[in-house]
Simulated assay, not measured.
Amino acid sequence: MSSRVAPGEEVTPGLDRRAELKEFLRSRRARLRPEDVGLPTYGRRRVPGLRREELAQLAGMSYAYYARLEQGYGDTMSAEVLEAVALALRLNEEERDHLIRLAQPERTQAAPPPQQLRPTVRNLLDALGVPAYVVSRRMDILGWNRLATAVFGDWAQLPPEERNLARLIFLSPATRDRFADPDRAAVRAAGALRMNAGKSPGDSHLSSLIHELSQRSEEFRRLWARHEVSCGTIGDTVRMRHPLVGEFDLVHEPMALPGGAPMRLVTYHAEPGSRSEEALRTLASWEMAPLR
C-alpha cells in the first residue's frame, strides 16, 4: 500500500481529534503515580497512574471541568487552563504544544500543500559535505545528497511513493539494518509522526500512512498506542551500521526550512578526529569514486 494517494482514489479520513485528545491525556496520566506529585495513595487502582480527580486537583480545577477536556471539549477552555493541565501532567515542550493543538483546533495548521524542493535547496544539498536530506511533515523524503545515499542506502532505486522515512524504518529490513539501534529509530519515527499528526489532523495523506503502518507493523501499533510526542533531541547521536566500515556515530541536526509548506533539512556529522569521522570519510570517497 502506498503512503500517497492518486487523484480520485479514496483516502483515509483525518484523525479524530477528540479521540486523540482523550487518549493522549489518558496516556500522560497513566505515567504519573500519586507519590510522584506529592499526593497520598489510597484505594485499589484498576489502572495505573493518576485518577481524573487527582489530576483535576493538581491543575486547580473541578473534576467535571477536567472531565470535559478529556472528552474532547478543549476548544471551550482558556489557554491558562491548558497550561495548568500541561504543568500538572509534567509535559515537556513538545507534549504541551501537542495538547494545545489537539484541544484547540483553531490553532492547528491546515494540511500542507504538495511539496517540491526549490532548486536552491537542491543545490545546497549537493554542496554540503555531510550526509543530508529534506523531509516533509509526512516524513516523505523530498531530496538528498550522495553522502546520504552512502549512509542510508540508495533511495533513488525506490518508487517515489515509497520514499518515506517512517515507512522505510518500519517496513524495510534493509533500512533497519543501517541503524545499529533500529528500535530507537522506530521510537523516534513514531513520535515524530504523532507530533506531526497533531499539527495537521485533517491531512488525509498522513492518515493513510498511519493506517498503512498500523495494518502492516505490530511494532508501529505498539509504539503508536504509547502516544509519545517527539522527533528526538537536537544534537542526538545516532549509531549507524554499514557493511563497508562497520558501526559509527553521527550527530543528528534537523532544522526547519523557511517558506512554503513545512520541510526540515536533516544533517548528520561526525565528531572531528573520531573514528566515526574516518568512517564517514571512507564512505564519502567510496560514494564519490567515478564509475568504471
Rank of each mutant, 00 (worst) to 15 (best):
residue 1 M to V: 15
residue 2 S to F: 10
residue 3 S to E: 11
residue 3 S to Y: 12
residue 6 A to S: 13
residue 14 G to M: 09
residue 17 R to Q: 14
residue 21 L to Q: 10
residue 24 F to A: 10
residue 27 S to K: 05
residue 34 P to Y: 04
residue 35 E to H: 05
residue 35 E to L: 08
residue 35 E to Q: 08
residue 37 V to D: 01
residue 40 P to T: 04
residue 42 Y to M: 06
residue 46 R to P: 04
residue 49 G to I: 11
residue 50 L to E: 04
residue 51 R to H: 12
residue 51 R to I: 10
residue 56 A to H: 02
residue 58 L to I: 12
residue 60 G to Y: 05
residue 60 G to L: 04
residue 61 M to T: 03
residue 61 M to V: 08
residue 63 Y to N: 13
residue 64 A to T: 15
residue 65 Y to A: 04
residue 66 Y to E: 01
residue 66 Y to I: 04
residue 69 L to V: 06
residue 76 T to K: 08
residue 77 M to D: 02
residue 78 S to N: 03
residue 78 S to T: 13
residue 79 A to Q: 07
residue 80 E to T: 09
residue 81 V to E: 00
residue 82 L to G: 07
residue 84 A to I: 07
residue 84 A to N: 05
residue 86 A to Y: 04
residue 88 A to Y: 06
residue 92 N to C: 06
residue 92 N to S: 07
residue 94 E to R: 06
residue 99 L to P: 00
residue 99 L to F: 04
residue 99 L to Q: 03
residue 101 R to D: 13
residue 102 L to R: 04
residue 103 A to P: 05
residue 105 P to D: 15
residue 107 R to Q: 15
residue 108 T to N: 11
residue 109 Q to C: 14
residue 110 A to Y: 07
residue 112 P to S: 10
residue 115 Q to E: 15
residue 116 Q to H: 13
residue 116 Q to Y: 12
residue 116 Q to G: 14
residue 118 R to Q: 10
residue 119 P to S: 03
residue 122 R to D: 06
residue 122 R to H: 08
residue 124 L to W: 07
residue 125 L to K: 01
residue 127 A to M: 13
residue 127 A to I: 13
residue 129 G to F: 09
residue 130 V to M: 13
residue 132 A to Y: 02
residue 132 A to V: 03
residue 134 V to Q: 03
residue 135 V to I: 15
residue 137 R to N: 11
residue 141 I to H: 00
residue 141 I to R: 03
residue 143 G to M: 00
residue 143 G to A: 04
residue 144 W to D: 09
residue 145 N to H: 09
residue 146 R to T: 11
residue 147 L to S: 06
residue 150 A to Q: 01
residue 153 G to Y: 01
residue 153 G to T: 02
residue 153 G to F: 00
residue 161 E to N: 11
residue 163 R to S: 09
residue 167 R to M: 15
residue 173 P to M: 11
residue 174 A to S: 14
residue 175 T to P: 00
residue 177 D to K: 09
residue 180 A to T: 01
residue 183 D to N: 13
residue 185 A to M: 03
residue 185 A to G: 02
residue 187 V to T: 10
residue 187 V to K: 02
residue 188 R to V: 15
residue 190 A to Y: 07
residue 191 G to C: 10
residue 191 G to W: 09
residue 197 A to S: 15
residue 197 A to Q: 12
residue 200 S to P: 00
residue 201 P to D: 04
residue 203 D to L: 06
residue 209 L to I: 12
residue 210 I to C: 03
residue 217 S to H: 01
residue 217 S to V: 06
residue 222 R to Q: 11
residue 224 W to N: 01
residue 226 R to E: 14
residue 227 H to F: 14
residue 228 E to M: 09
residue 231 C to I: 09
residue 232 G to S: 07
residue 232 G to W: 00
residue 233 T to R: 09
residue 234 I to L: 13
residue 234 I to V: 15
residue 234 I to P: 08
residue 234 I to C: 10
residue 236 D to K: 07
residue 241 R to H: 11
residue 243 P to N: 11
residue 244 L to P: 01
residue 245 V to E: 00
residue 250 L to K: 01
residue 255 M to V: 14
residue 255 M to N: 08
residue 258 P to D: 11
residue 259 G to E: 08
residue 259 G to R: 08
residue 260 G to Y: 02
residue 261 A to S: 15
residue 265 L to N: 05
residue 266 V to T: 15
residue 267 T to Q: 13
residue 269 H to T: 10
residue 269 H to S: 11
residue 272 P to Y: 12
residue 277 E to H: 03
residue 281 R to D: 14
residue 284 A to E: 04
residue 284 A to R: 03
residue 290 P to Q: 05
residue 291 L to D: 03
residue 292 R to C: 05
residue 292 R to E: 07
residue 292 R to F: 06
